[in-house]
Simulated scan of single mutants.
Amino acid sequence: MFAGELEVPKQALTRILHRITADDVEYVFDDSIAALTQHDAGVRVEFERGAAREFGLVLGADGLYSKVRQLAFGPHADALRHLGLSGTGFTTANFLGLDHTGLLQQGKGTAVYAFSAAGKERMAVGLSFETDSPALDRLGREEQEQAVRDAFAGHGWEMAPRLPAAMSAADDFHFSSSAQVRLGTWSHGRIALVGDAATAPRPPAAWAPRRP
Rank of each mutant, 00 (worst) to 15 (best):
A72Q: 05
K10H: 13
R190I: 00
A197S: 04
G74C: 05
A117M: 03
S86Q: 03
G42W: 05
V68Y: 10
I16C: 05
S32M: 12
F73L: 04
A197W: 04
Y27W: 14
F29E: 07
G156N: 02
Q146K: 12
A124I: 06
L183V: 11
E142C: 02
G89P: 01
A124H: 08
D78N: 08
D137E: 11
D78H: 11
E5I: 13
A166L: 15
D172M: 12
S116R: 06
S168I: 10
G140C: 11
L183K: 11
L80G: 00
A51F: 05
L17Y: 11
A118D: 03
P212D: 14
G184R: 13
A151W: 02
G50F: 05
A22M: 00
S86A: 05
I20S: 14
M1T: 13
Q146I: 01
V181Q: 08
F55G: 02
F173M: 11
G97L: 09
L127F: 01
A197Q: 00
L163K: 07
A35T: 09
K120F: 15
G184N: 10
H155E: 05
S133M: 07
F152C: 01
D196P: 00
L139S: 07
G74P: 03
V148M: 02
T199Y: 13
H18K: 14
K67S: 04
L6E: 04
V148Q: 06
R210D: 11
G126R: 02
A77P: 01
S128K: 05
R190C: 02
F152G: 01
E143M: 05
D78M: 03
A170T: 00
L13K: 03
A61W: 03
R122S: 12
G89L: 12
D78V: 08
V181W: 06
G184C: 09
L183H: 09
F129R: 08
A111I: 09
T185M: 07
V148G: 00
A179G: 07
F47H: 10
Q106N: 12
E145K: 01
M1N: 12
A111E: 02
R69N: 06
A160I: 04
V68M: 09
G60M: 14
F55A: 14
A153S: 08
H174D: 00
T91P: 01
G60R: 08
V194C: 13
E121A: 09
H39C: 12
